[in-house]
Design a protein around this nucleic acid. Structure first.
Lengths: 201, 201
DNA sequence: TAGTTGACAAAAGAGGCTAATCTGTCAACC
DNA sequence: GGTTGACAGATTAGCCTCTTTTGTCAACTA
């Protein structure tokens, strides 16, 4: 599984990583609309043109940033899932609870939700949310298939997309506590996963 | 079931209905931020003060308008559900498909989704969406309980809220076709409803 | 080769300032 | 129960200017 990465790819990856980290730092302090590309480049210790060369445009960078941050959440979800490979229903609950809790506490997510206008990042998870939904769905699908290889791919994807959409919904319009939501959703989707995975609670 | 409504209530209801209808007509043409309370009142053939007396403020009117329009969609959902009382799984599919199709074609919904900013109506179904979610959930829960009295209330509510959130998600960030979504979601939630209602397909 | 620098047009945004409009709430009237 | 007219305070439209930002050059450097 471990392969040495050739220098060019590694350098490129490092560059992206550095720029995205700089972007995160900025977004944690001010609204997206008040942050300039020049500032991000400067914070990363790189020229503005390098930023453009790597990401193409401001909007594309925003997309990449949101997905990159999402990656952090999904890593945690992965871990939560792996701790409940024996009990799919509990896995769903743990995954959702982990996600909602960390997202709810994350300063970046708070800012994202508070900056309403068209200029902000919020549309990237609502009206223009499809890229994020599809990316997260693909990622979660992979996690599920890895944890339960016997699951039919179509059903894994179905479950993943529903979880992604429900998770986003609960983050943007929060009602009950993460635990309550996790419990309910586990109950709701439990019968489906029991059937799909051929395992009983 | 049929009771004569006393005049005062009837008049009040007629007033609200007329104002909301006027509001809908306006919103179908321009963005919410460009519509004034005076125009709505005029379109309803009523004075501005009557509007304020009835709805309190611009924001409250917006809330009422969104819910009132939602009522139209949920009426259709009700009908769709009632046509499949023998098959809960099909009922879910029909309900979602009906909702997504009519919502997708509705000019009002299109405008709602295109007007991003804080000034628009969109936040009422996303970041400030809880009132709408709760209202729609309560309404759908009632429909389910009426159609399947044997269903445990908690499970009916659980199912209803998930359907509401998924429906909103699919309207704001549309991916597949209404039919495909309806089919998938029916499949996803089927096992749960089978269990909750004690009926097999 | 991968990055920096400086320069650029076009687009967007900040600032100020006035006039107009809108909201939300009066009280008087029918 | 509804209308009318009037009102202060807050918003918004318009316009104009100045500045900044975006996105893309070509020339330069390690």
């Amino acid at each position: 599984m471990e392969t040495r990465t050739p220098y060019p790819q590694a350098a490129r990856r490092l560059l992206r990583e550095t720029l995205l980290a700089a972007g995160r730092d900025e977004v944690q302090q001010r609204a997206w609309s008040e942050i300039t590309m020049a500032e991000i480049a400067a914070a990363a210790g790189v020229s503005r043109q390098t930023l453009y060369k790597e990401f193409g445009s401001r909007d594309e960078f925003a997309q990449a940033l949101v997905i990159h941050e999402g990656e952090r959440f999904l890593d945690q979800v992965d871990t939560a899932v792996r701790e409940h490979l024996d009990d799919p229903r509990a896995a769903i609950g743990a995954a959702l609870e982990t996600f909602l809790r960390t997202a709810g506490e994350d300063p970046l997510v708070r800012i994202l939700l508070s900056d309403d206008g068209t200029a902000g990042l919020l549309p990237l998870v609502t009206t223009q949310g499809m890229p994020v939904v599809q990316w997260a769905t693909a990622r979660l699908t992979a996690t599920i298939e890895q944890g339960w290889p016997q699951a039919p791919p179509a059903k894994a994807r179905l479950l993943a997309e529903a979880l992604v959409r429900l998770a986003i919904s609960h983050v943007t319009a929060p009602g009950e506590s993460p635990e309550a939501i996790a419990k309910s959703t586990g109950e709701l989707l439990g019968p489906f996963v029991d059937e799909a995975l051929g395992q009983a609670t």
